[in-house]
Amino acid sequence: MAMANEPVSADSLALKTLKKKRTGKQIAKSLLKHFVLCLVGLCFLGPFAYLLQTSVKSIEDIFAVPFVWWPEKLYWENYSNAVQAIPFLRYTWNTLFVALLCVLGELIAAPLTAYGLARIPFKGRNVIFLVMMGTIMLPMQSTMVPMYVLYNKLGMVNSYWPLVLPAFFGAAYYIFLLRQFFMGIPQEITESAKIDGASEFRIYSQMILPLSRPALFTVGLLVFLNTWKDYQMPLIYLNEPIKWTLSVGLKAFIGEYDVEWGMLMAAAALFTIPVIVLYFFVQKVFIQGITMTGTK
């Protein structure tokens, strides 16, 4: 471990000297980078900017041809109306509750399983991996009904169990993702600990997990995001409106012949913001990840 420390200090030293003599060429290069990032960034800002813009537009402006770039009057009341039209706080809480439980469950189960598949060369692990991958290759439309039958037999219909419980057993997608990360960690790192007689679980919890923080945060983020956005599962399994999640609740604005576009867009914007905030903080972890891997 000490061995890896030197390059880092050397690196920071090198950085310092580099900073002193930033040449014109480097400045131009950095400008170019910013230019490219800004340009592509604008394209990517589009959908969200569009969402925000439509959320304060009148129905006339939303569909006007040609496109209305800046509406004359802003309909902020779309927001207050939307929040009042559906039990917004209640749905937000429900969604948060389900999403956080799923993150918790997935972060307990997925890394364990992934570790077993990645770093314990036991007989049959390839079979397990194969079956696991197989489970997600079958389209869910064909297993949806038997799945419902099962949950109904377990008495779990109209409860959060069907949405949350599977996470505590790990989803193939995240297990596979973490397996790839764990397989990338050099054996030398754990070898000495093994020789010292550390238990497998100790190696897992005290060496591998800390080393995989970016991966674990990524999994947490993706689980949260996917649960947050999921529509089908809550719709199928939750019967009482008071239990609904936001994605189901958003449907309230979509009538058969009439759509409350302004309110729908305002609610959709509110729906999006918590995940953006969450993402902003999670991606910061990636930067911390660098220094950590550097000192290992």
Partner: peptide, 26 residues
């Protein structure tokens, strides 16, 4: 190794047996 491996992968295996095997076979 087998015991260790099965222990670590047991969350998924148990979940598979309870929740996924029946719908897939069905």
């Amino acid at each position: 190794l087998l015991v260790k491996g099965l222990l670590f992968t047991s969350p998924w295996i148990i979940g598979f047996l309870i929740f996924q095997l029946y719908p897939i076979l069905a």
